[in-house]
């Protein structure tokens, strides 16, 4: 405790960002240090798990020092340690989990394992101090595309998700094909600003009626076929047009499906979260659609959309408040399902 506030030291290392944060009362960010490895992985054209793990190990302790220094706190002020334990790259996750467990043991602090996606959703609690469940959330990242019904701070159910590629994956693949390179999301977003979203009408793949699932591989294949046909015919493609048209098709599918879910469940607030949620066109489209339907639209600032520990601190705080704890035997779970708790138990 410091100044009457409950402080969570949070750790996130599920992919290629090493991040440590100090969060007060689950809502106020005192520090959120993010050490990104993106420059290292760009030369390989994507995240290399072994290299990510090696860098997490050498970075994490210094990132913790920075987070505590910037928050101006000591170990005595810390009330809880929260850590992402899945889903993610196993080798990357385990650096965070091993470190968090050692801190908790050495300083005799309670520990809570946090679901990475729960963290992304909780970024909205930081952005909107008044926001409370229930609400509907769409999580969009390199590995996830899900419509999630958030019923409580630490409880949620998946209503639908992608049947093939995650949205972020589709962005990365298309970016590679049209020569924009890695990481695809921000590069397509930028290129699309110069292009015409109606230049090419890529087919929107809507699954059977009533389904809240979606598919992006069809759109992606549409782009690949278009690019190949044009190249074979010796015609030059317009990268901004392809980027804008592809992005428009993806966003169309996402908006249609999520609004369908929001209306079906009679929910008044809709949130987006995850790395792809910082895509500017996507935000505008959701903003507009929600406004038309009279639904409140919330979204974290771009920095809270990336993988960061502050969101884990918020989610961990609420797990703790609800009575959940993890033991010294906490494991990293690479394919942890949304809503699943492994090694996180209700305190007696």
């Amino acid at each position: 405790m410091k100044d009457g506030k409950f402080l969570t030291l949070a750790i996130e290392s599920s992919c290629d960002e090493t991040s440590v944060a100090v969060v007060a009362d689950g809502r106020t960010v005192l520090s959120d240090i993010i050490s990104s490895q993106i420059k290292i992985h760009t030369q390989f054209g994507g995240v290399v798990p072994e290299i990510a793990s090696r860098h997490h190990l050498t970075n994490i302790n210094e990132v913790t020092e920075q987070a505590m220094r910037e928050a101006d706190v000591t170990w005595d002020d810390i009330d809880l340690i929260g850590v992402t334990y899945g889903p993610g790259l196993i080798g990357a996750l385990l650096i965070g989990v091993a470190t968090a467990k050692a801190y908790a043991f050495a300083k005799n602090k309670p520990l809570v394992g946090v679901h990475h996606i729960q963290g992304h959703i909780s970024a909205n609690y930081i952005q909107y101090p008044e926001l409370k469940p229930p609400f509907m959330a769409m999580v969009l990242s390199g590995g996830h595309t899900n419509i999630i019904n958030v019923t409580d701070y630490n409880k949620c159910t998946v209503l639908g998700g992608t049947r093939d590629d995650a949205a972020g994956e589709a962005f990365d693949k298309v970016a590679r094909v049209i020569g924009l390179g890695y990481p695809g999301g921000p590069k397509i977003d930028k290129a699309a600003k110069e292009g015409n979203p109606h230049a090419i009408e890529f087919k929107r793949v809507m699954l059977e009626k009533g389904s809240m699932d979606f598919s992006f591989s069809g759109i992606k294949t549409g782009v690949l076929n278009y690019v190949n046909t044009e190249r074979q015919a010796g015609r030059e493609i317009s990268v901004p047009d392809v980027a804008a048209s592809f992005q428009a098709a993806v966003v169309d599918v996402l908006v249609t499906h999520s609004l369908h879910a929001v209306k079906e469940y009679g929910i008044k607030t809709f949130a987006i979260a995850g790395g792809v949620a910082s895509n500017s066109h996507l935000r505008e489209a959701f903003e507009k659609a929600c406004k038309e339907e009279g639904i409140e639209f919330v979204h974290p600032s771009p920095i809270l959309c990336t993988d960061n520990a502050a969101m884990i601190g918020s989610a961990g705080y609420y797990e703790f408040i609800k009575g959940y704890r993890s033991g010294t035997d906490l494991n990293a779970v690479p394919n942890l399902q949304i809503g699943e708790k492994q090694g996180v138990f209700l305190a007696k």
Binding site: E50, S53, R54, L57, I60, N61, T64, E65, W75, I90, G91, L94, I95, A98, T99, A100, K101, A102, Y103, F105, A106, K107
Partner: peptide, 19 residues
């Protein structure tokens, strides 16, 4: 084992740091 090495070394680093 790369993974095994990292479990031990990161635990030792964090213990040494915190203690």
């Amino acid at each position: 084992s790369f993974t095994g090495i990292r479990i031990g070394v990161s635990t030792a680093r964090a213990l040494a740091q915190a203690l």
